[in-house]
């Protein structure tokens, strides 16, 4: 069991095995994650779809180390994350994971560039180095003229681009997006999706949770969840490196 666990974990960015998570909704236990097994290679583009309450957001939170499974194992980048302390998980989130949320979660009193800079500040990076890292990101997001604006002076699409900037400023290997276009009109939604896909093309592993079937179909690997169980895991065979299926992890 141990040998079988370590081998695939060595080359996969994410490896999840036998993970369960139960919530109490009132008096009723809800099995949000039911014996989940999943393996994701670095550079994959994955979408997670399913009806409300199917556990897809819980899965994303768990993958992002925001939530801890009740039991099971989760290796991220070769490290077993379940026994980690909250402080260790915080360090991992900071250096390995970027989050993009449906409602942006920008800090309203900070300007666009300051919001993007925040993870660098939390990491204790010197101001000069921060400035050096900030400039290309702002350039890339096309926020140059808006960098000094407060979030409430920006459009929804611009806000989400700021949030993406914040998510990638630490150069994480994993980018988790929870309904990234949920609050956007189709035009700005398309721009945000294009930006995310460009980042994926540059090598970042992208996982998108969405209700939007069109957005979900764009991913090269598509997971469908119902009642805490992965019911389908399709991939467009564009990449032969990812063709190996994970029979052992199937429920």
């Amino acid at each position: 069991m141990k040998a079988a666990g370590i081998n695939p974990a060595a080359d996969a960015l994410i490896r999840v095995q036998g993970v369960n998570k139960t919530f109490l909704l009132g008096d009723e236990p809800v099995h949000a994650l039911n014996n989940i097994g999943l393996s994701i290679q670095a550079g994959e583009y994955l979408s997670v779809m399913g009806p409300s309450g199917s556990g897809k957001s819980t899965l994303l939170n768990m993958l992002g180390l925001l939530d801890v499974p009740d039991n099971g194992q989760y290796w991220l980048n070769g490290a077993d994350t379940v026994p980690m302390s909250e402080e260790q998980r915080a360090v991992y989130r900071r250096s390995h994971i970027g989050f993009v949320f449906q409602s942006y979660h920008l800090i309203p009193r900070l300007s666009a560039s300051e919001n993007i800079e925040l993870p660098l500040i939390l990491a204790g990076i010197a101001p000069a180095e921060r400035k050096r890292r900030l400039a290309p990101v702002i350039e890339r997001l096309g926020l140059g003229s808006r960098a000094g604006h407060l979030p409430n002076q920006l459009s929804g699409g611009q806000r989400q681009r700021v949030a993406i900037g914040r998510a990638i400023i630490m150069k994480p290997r994993l980018l988790l997006a929870d309904e990234p276009t949920g609050n956007l009109d189709s035009q700005s939604g398309a721009e945000v999706v294009q930006l995310l896909e460009e980042l994926n093309a540059d090598g970042i592993t992208l996982i998108v949770v969405t209700h939007d079937a069109d957005l979900g179909r764009r991913a090269s690997r598509r997971i469908r969840m119902v009642d805490g169980v992965i019911v389908s895991d399709d991939r467009t065979s564009s990449s032969d490196a990812q063709s190996r299926t994970d029979q052992s992890d199937a429920p």
């Binding site: 925001l66 915080a90 989130r93 979660h105 925040l118 939390l122 990491a123 914040r166």
Partner: peptide, 16 residues
Amino acid sequence: TAEIGLLKALGASSRE
């Protein structure tokens, strides 16, 4: 509260 959650998601520890 949401800001606290965000700071933690961005990698701030409880102590920070």
